[in-house]
Design a protein around this nucleic acid. Structure first.
Lengths: 207, 207
DNA sequence: TGAATCTTACCGACCGGTCGTTAGGCAAAT
DNA sequence: ATTTGCCTAACGACCGGTCGGTAAGATTCA
């Protein structure tokens, strides 16, 4: 059965999150599974394959989560709100995996690195298109789309590094705060008619 | 002379940034300095001491940079703007060191870990006090101070992970964008008189 | 001044230990 | 009888770190 294969993955997620990929040993993972380290190689070709399996699965689920949350949402602002919320919720709900996926890219082989980065880029571009649509529709102020998208993504991603499931704030509450914070950043100056200080004049197209 | 001691530090910064602390070997650092690895131990007690030296120096400089930028600035909003700008500029200007300082904490010994985290906490608390002063003075909307401060810090810090010195945007331009983005986030709803959606009702004091 | 001593900054060789990985075998399940 | 899932044992490579030693310069003392 594939039960042990899943166990290995879940133990590896715990250890990679806690001590980092390079500081985690195969024997440590094996011990966490209650087997010998040689037995790991029956299920995975090598250590890097475990890391890749975690990242691949996480990135795939991240994209699927976003797609599901956007189906049926047509209003531009509502779509971006939904995207932000989806992003935050996924990252907080899958705190360990997303932290690993964003911090252990260096552990991947060249081919696997390219595969994961390609998925990440697709995700980023999708968000950038949402922002551009909003600017085009006049509900967001003009700004540097790349920087804004990075800001949104890293803001939400960083949440996964300090979020405490036992803390005082729920995932929903945090998502709400981020949602408002980001939306007001995107709309900045629009309602006030203020000419905008340094953000004005930057290109809005992608490089 | 202490020249080699500095060379080791600068080579280590390059390698830690590029490959990570655990993936960098003492012999690699030595090779980068043009000496044998045993000679490293004449200048530093062990590998971790090199990491600590980098972090300690960086955190000290970070605090000093902020203090210098805030002297003479009294207006609450201007102080927060200056703090954000100081933070962004320092992180982009010392991209490698700040990236290491924020991503390689796990490489430190317990005692050194506590020392660095203490410095980081002091810095965070300082920013939180700035925000609270702004809320108290009525120029920022009420919100969760902890979350807001984390948002500001991670937003700026993340810039160090994607900033390209040879890219199309200058440090000054990026700092300006972040400054406006964050300020509008902090002021959200104030001028519009909108009751605020999910951000309303959270405590503004520190835990 | 000159000899003796100490300090600085480095080297080559080596240590114990851990790493990821492989080979081969064994017992239970199919 | 074969496959599945795990085992014990061992491999070579490399790790951080220590050792004794050394060449060159600075300092001390006669």
């Amino acid at each position: 059965m594939a039960r042990m294969k899943e166990t290995i993955l879940s133990v590896a997620i715990d250890l990679f999150f806690e001590k980092g990929y390079f500081a985690t040993s195969i024997s440590g993972i094996a011990a966490g599974c209650g087997i010998q380290k040689a037995s790991i190689y029956y299920h995975y070709a090598n250590k890097e394959a475990i890391l890749f399996a975690i990242m691949e699965r996480t990135m795939q689920a991240l994209v699927a989560h976003l797609e599901q949350r956007l189906t049926g949402v047509t209003d531009v602002e509502a779509r971006l709100r939904a995207a932000v919320r989806s992003h935050v919720e996924f990252h907080l709900r899958h705190q360990k995996e997303t932290f690993i996926a964003s911090s252990e890219l260096r552990g991947l082989s060249d081919a696997h690195y390219r595969a994961i980065v390609a998925r990440r880029d697709t995700y980023e571009q999708f968000l950038q298109e949402l922002i551009m649509a909003g600017i085009g529709a006049g509900c967001f102020a003009a700004g540097d789309v790349k920087i804004l998208s990075y800001a949104i993504l890293t803001l939400c991603t960083a949440g996964a590094s300090w979020y405490n499931p036992a803390g005082r704030l729920s995932i929903d509450a945090i998502a709400g705060i981020y949602e408002d914070f980001i939306l007001s950043g995107l709309k900045q100056g629009l309602s006030e008619g203020r000419p905008g200080t340094s953000a004005a004049g930057y290109m809005t197209h992608l490089a």
